[in-house]
Design a protein around this nucleic acid. Structure first.
Lengths: 218, 218
DNA sequence: CAGCAAGCGGAGCAGGAACTCCGCTTCGTC
DNA sequence: GACGAAGCGGAGTTCCTGCTCCGCTTGCTG
């Protein structure tokens, strides 16, 4: 059964939006470690109000993640639609790393919305799109074909973390980092990789573990 | 002038070693987030005793880092001495990532010993060695020559972070990650990189920033 | 416009982790 | 063996941050 069709009172609705806006800005500017009190202050609201809507800080983060997921989905859609399949790969990876470079909270935000659900729901939303970008470039022969989305995801996670730190000191360094990764991903150059890619189930588990490690990390 | 040539009492010396051993083990097994009380407990010592030797937790971490630096220096020396220069690159990067995969505290430990000194002292110790491994392979023509130690360091930082998380679920995944990185570093395959490598001064600053971000991360 | 449920806010609570303090113990010298 | 300095230990302090509680306020309905 659907829960509570009762709409929020107008002031409550306004405060809810203020909280979401303030949280999104605060996470981007100061990272996910920012305190709940500070978010409430910036929203012009008491912490009590915040906690009535979001029972935990994680729930608030989840809400922001959900909000921003569409932004990444749009990026992926754009990457699916490039003329050259390889350009799609560059666009997707570049777009993700650029966000890491300019948005301090992006790491934790992209991590996943696992807390509320216990399942990697964001991954479920985005993985098919990412997979299409990748397999398109593999069919085209531009992307090495011994890798899967899971391999690329791991690459991005790591690079994102490095980019997050370096971008404060050398803002454009991520472009070089990306360049090296892309060279490692190009097909004509591939040296056989050891082992096998993670399974999809392992990918789910990785996604959850990654999210956890990002969220505990202030 | 040299401070305090006064030697420690025998029991104090024994306790100091116990603390160092316990800390090293605890960091490796449980990560740097482990509490000071727990380290003291495992060392069979009171927290007071620990704090007499190490005025802050960071000082203790620094001491462990210093201890382990030689281990990495040895790895780098081995990498300088391989027959094939490229094998040295593989050995160095592989050795670093493998440690990330098996030692939960390695990230923070390798980060640097910046807190006590305020300067990237570990970097000062290891950078020349790393640079020799790299330039040797570049002269040889096996490693792309448009990169510097700073570029490689960033790559390792990011990969290390990813490896740390994935290795709990897919223990060998780091080998694939490394394989892709190595393909990105091979000379014959290089696509020109944008921008210029970080300067040495920027590299110092990056090292300090990276250390800080690793240490605040529990 | 009256009544009240829904909403508000922020002082305070809880718990976790780094660090301090000080009475007691032990080592090593004379 | 005795004495004092060095060392010990762990209960307690502090600080930080997520979260709760409850008396007051406000928007909505009849």
């Amino acid at each position: 059964m659907a829960t509570t069709p009762v709409p929020l009172r107008r002031d409550a609705q306004r405060n809810l939006e203020r909280i979401l806006d303030a949280a999104q800005e605060a996470f981007a500017a100061d990272g996910i470690e920012i305190g709940v009190d500070e978010i409430a202050r910036r929203a012009g609201v008491g912490v009590g109000t915040l906690y009535r809507r979001f029972p935990t800080k994680d729930a608030l983060i989840d809400a922001i993640v959900e909000r921003r997921t569409e932004e990444i989905a749009a990026l992926a859609a754009e990457a699916e639609a490039t003329d050259e399949p390889w350009a799609g790969v560059e666009l997707l990876l570049g777009g993700l790393l650029e966000r890491h470079a300019t948005d301090r909270g992006f790491k934790a935000l992209i991590a996943d919305r696992t807390v509320a659900t216990g399942k990697p729901t964001i991954r479920a939303r985005l993985r098919p799109q990412f997979a299409r970008v990748i397999t398109r470039a593999q069919r085209d022969g531009s992307l090495r074909d011994d890798i899967t989305v899971e391999d690329v995801t791991t690459l991005i996670w790591g690079a994102g973390r490095a980019v997050e730190v370096t971008s404060e000191i050398v803002p454009d360094h991520w472009r070089r980092h990306l360049g090296i990764l892309l060279d490692g991903l190009r097909a004509p150059r591939a040296t056989p990789l050891p082992g096998t890619p993670p399974t999809i189930a392992q990918g789910d588990a990785l996604s959850v573990a990654w999210a956890a490690s990002c969220r505990s990390g202030r």
